[in-house]
Design a binder for these strands. Structure first.
Lengths: 136, 136
DNA sequence: CTCATTACTTGTAAAGTGCAACTAATACGC
DNA sequence: GCGTATTAGTTGCACTTTACAAGTAATGAG
């Protein structure tokens, strides 16, 4: 299939647009950081930096920013004092939930005009693709 | 369906990763600009800036950068001298083709382990979704 | 001809990025 | 243990990216 390139670029752009429009007051990258922290229980800096695919030095500064915004807390890990564990504050968790709610609403809106079968097919296909793409 | 959020974030991240890894020496945004120019015949600055969803002032500077890299040319439009028409240089076109080739290869690699039916289903689903999402 | 509008550029300031070099804590070899 | 290597994270720096505000130049409207 040779139409994969236009589909790739267009889908990429739409998804980025949805994500950006769903974030109020924070950047897409910062939203991704909140999301990755929410997925794990008290992850370390390294863990999350790797998960969002960014340099640890840039990440360190982003965490500083998110801490100033009172969305994230950094707590020293008692078992190894080089390590800081990250968690969302109540405010951070609320924001994370709100962003995902807006994203979900936008996606569901796009799926709304499909019949049940098509909607299920599209969702399952996205899932299949996502699994295949995970890990490049 | 409540699994839409993990799928959204993971797919988004994978596609961004693929795009980034396919770009050598230019940023994802710059690659998107090259791609949008390649889609149209001699588009104006405004047209492309809108297509990639970026501020015209930022766009103007990015075009300056791409011109310095000899990937894009800006030619005055004779019918209206406020307007500049954009086109890819040979080098720019080559790079655009190369990036899309790498993206296509990575996507096809992910699709390779599916049977024909599943592959077609996934591709058609991406297309359907892309059409529904276009225009947010 | 004058004034509003349009297409694009430039000033400036802030945010984002990553390499190199740093500090501090832990692990390893002996 | 003790000294060295490694690991987690931070900071200095330089460069890129971004967008608002203000500017220039060309076109359109009355």
């Amino acid at each position: 299939m040779d139409k994969i390139i236009p589909i790739f670029h267009s889908l990429s752009k739409s998804m980025r647009g949805i994500h950006k429009a769903s974030c109020d007051n924070i950047s897409i990258v910062q939203s991704s950081i909140l999301y990755e922290i929410s997925l794990k229980k008290k992850p370390s800096m390294q863990t999350v930096a790797e998960a969002v695919g960014m340099d640890i030095t840039t990440f360190s500064r982003q965490i500083g920013t998110l801490e100033k915004k009172e969305l994230v807390t950094r707590t020293p890990y008692e078992g190894d004092r080089r390590i800081y564990l990250l968690s969302l504050t109540g405010k951070g968790s609320d924001m994370e939930v709100a962003i995902n709610g807006i994203i979900a609403a936008k996606m569901e809106n796009a799926l709304a005009s499909m019949n049940d079968f098509e909607r299920e097919t599209v969702l399952r296909s996205m899932h299949v693709l996502e699994v295949k793409l995970r890990g490049n």
